[in-house]
């Protein structure tokens, strides 16, 4: 188990980090290159002012019309994404690992709060899953891939929660936690999770079209 642990926090962590960062850079370049060659319109009509206007308006929960039509979904989505990004970055245990291996440290969240945010992420994943089953318009377009991604996102949080509370075999749980976290990072550039990187550009483009060309709102 120690050898496995050593591998997942050692070489595999480097690989996951590299795949994540280089993958994002590579995919951004692919999209930029494709836009330049095949969709020059996107670059031509992209307007920083209206792109940012659109992004800003959609960053405010319950501000766009559709986010008010789905208040529960809006609340869950905002809490989910914030917790998803901040919990792993500001978790005390993660910072300590970085401190131990690389001598880096930064302010962290109190453990009970991090624990709560973890529950928020898991709860949101359950909500998304239930929604996929219950809402016909979501069920109709849901595929195995969507379930796989939901599980992939939930897994590091579920295993992290179990490990922190020492439920189940601790060492295996930690290894599973790290593995799934690394799997998650590596999947981001190459799956639907790439919306992390592409969503601002997609929104920026439609915001530019709506704002600069069509003089209309898009929120």
């Amino acid at each position: 188990m120690h050898a496995v642990y050593g591998f997942v926090v050692g070489p595999l962590a480097w690989i996951a980090g590299a795949v994540f960062v280089l993958g994002l850079v590579f995919r951004l370049w692919v999209f930029y290159d494709l836009a330049r060659r095949k969709d020059p319109m996107v670059l031509e009509y992209m307007s920083p002012k209206y792109a940012l206007r659109s992004i800003l308006h959609w960053s405010i929960p319950f501000h766009p019309v559709n986010s008010r039509r789905h208040p529960v979904m809006t609340a869950v989505t905002f809490l989910f994404h914030l917790s998803l990004v901040f919990t792993p970055l500001f978790l005390g245990a993660h910072m300590m690992l970085m401190d131990y291996y690389h001598g880096l440290s930064w302010p962290t969240l109190p453990d009970p709060l991090a624990d709560l945010l973890t529950v928020v992420v898991i709860g949101a994943c359950v909500f998304f899953g239930v929604r996929r089953v219950v809402r016909p318009e979501v069920r109709y377009v849901t595929t195995a891939k969507d379930w796989a991604i939901l599980v992939l996102v939930a897994l590091p949080f579920v295993t992290g929660f179990l490990a922190y509370h020492q439920i189940g075999p601790y060492q295996a749980m930690v290894v599973l936690h790290i593995l799934s976290g690394e799997g998650w990072l590596m999947a981001i550039p190459f799956t639907r999770l790439s919306h992390m990187m592409l969503a601002p550009f997609i929104r920026g483009y439609i915001g530019s079209e709506f704002g600069a060309v069509r003089h209309a709102r898009d929120w």
Binding site: L34, A35, D39, R135, D146, H195, L198
Partner: peptide
């Protein structure tokens, strides 16, 4: 005739169904 737009739209749509209420056909 297609490029970055189609690829980005198809690959990032998370199938949330939130577009539905915008459609008068729906």
């Amino acid at each position: 005739e297609t490029g970055a737009r189609l690829k980005a739209y198809v690959e990032t749509c998370v199938r949330c169904g939130l577009c539905s209420d915008g459609c008068h056909y729906y």
